[in-house]
Computed example of a mutant assay.
Amino acid sequence: MYKALTSIAERLESRQPLQALMPKHAWDAALEQQIEDLPLITAATPRADLPALIALKAGLHLLNESLAASHAHAQEIEDDATGCYWHGIMHRMEGDFSNANYWFHMAGAHPAMQRLQERSADWVRNSTILNDLPDGAIRDGLAAIARQARWNASAFTGMISLQESGSVSEESRGALEYLQHLELTELFAHTQQAARHAIV
């Protein structure tokens, strides 16, 4: 089972193109079933391990852009910070931005956000992205990421909402997709680490 999980995770983490800001369907329909069939939870699974294992499935599904499947798992662990964070990203990807912000608030200062902030700020500072984009709210939001001390999930949601409204240049879409990729990568790394001891 660990080999199957590793194979699925590696495929999703190295996929091209990156996850869309608002995907319309699963990236790989066959992979959706493979994820669901992973025997992560059995009758012998300790109750304390359930949130981490359920979050792992929610994360795998979201990396595959299987929004409904991810949502079903995230709803099982609404009192878990990692489950709340996956839940928020799922709602953001479906375009329900206010609901996304609610779940980001419930996730709180999630541990994955620190590394995400560091990587995001480093990328904005050391890439040419700010020079490549026209003046406006998205460029300003990216510049704020380079300065802020903590990841602001609601501000990022605002940038994606603006992008999806069609009122800004498509030039910024790639930058937002890359930042979302960093977010998904860091949250999945945290989720996988939390579940590692429970995977047999």
Rank of each mutant, 00 (worst) to 15 (best):
L40A: 09
G59R: 01
L133Q: 13
Q33I: 14
F188G: 07
L67K: 12
S66W: 08
A153K: 02
A137T: 03
S14H: 06
P23L: 02
A4L: 13
A121H: 10
A109I: 11
L62V: 05
A81I: 08
R47Y: 00
T128V: 11
M22D: 04
P17F: 00
A137H: 01
K24W: 00
M159L: 10
Q148F: 01
K3L: 13
D28G: 00
L5A: 04
G158V: 03
S167A: 15
Q75V: 14
P111M: 07
L184K: 11
L116D: 05
M106C: 13
A72D: 10
Q33E: 14
A58L: 02
I41N: 06
E164A: 12
I145F: 00
G83Q: 09
Q19L: 04
M93I: 14
R115T: 14
M93F: 11
A175Q: 05
I41K: 08
G158M: 03
P17Q: 01
T185D: 14
S161Q: 09
Q192Y: 15
M159I: 09
T6W: 06
D132K: 15
L60W: 05
H25R: 08
S7Q: 14
D49N: 10
R196I: 14
D96E: 08
E186R: 06
E32T: 07
H25P: 00
L56C: 09
D79I: 00
F104V: 13
E186L: 04
V200C: 15
H197C: 08
A30Q: 02
S7D: 14
G166H: 11
E171W: 13
Q193L: 15
Q148A: 10
W123F: 09
F188Q: 11
E94W: 05
M90P: 00
A69C: 04
T191W: 04
N101R: 15
I160Y: 13
S66Y: 06
R173D: 00
N64L: 01
I89V: 07
G174Y: 05
P17T: 01
A121I: 13
Q33L: 13
H87R: 11
P39M: 01
N152P: 05
A9P: 04
K24E: 03
A26E: 02
L67A: 11
E177C: 09
E164H: 09
A112C: 11
A58I: 04
M93V: 13
E94G: 06
Q180V: 06
A194F: 06
R139M: 02
L5M: 06
D28K: 00
L53S: 02
G141C: 02
A69L: 07
S169A: 07
D122K: 10
T157L: 04
A72S: 13
D79E: 10
H197S: 15
E170L: 08
E177V: 05
D79C: 01
T157N: 14
R139H: 02
K24A: 07
R196G: 15
M113D: 10
A20V: 02
Q192G: 09
F104C: 12
A195W: 04
T157P: 01
D122W: 09
R147I: 11
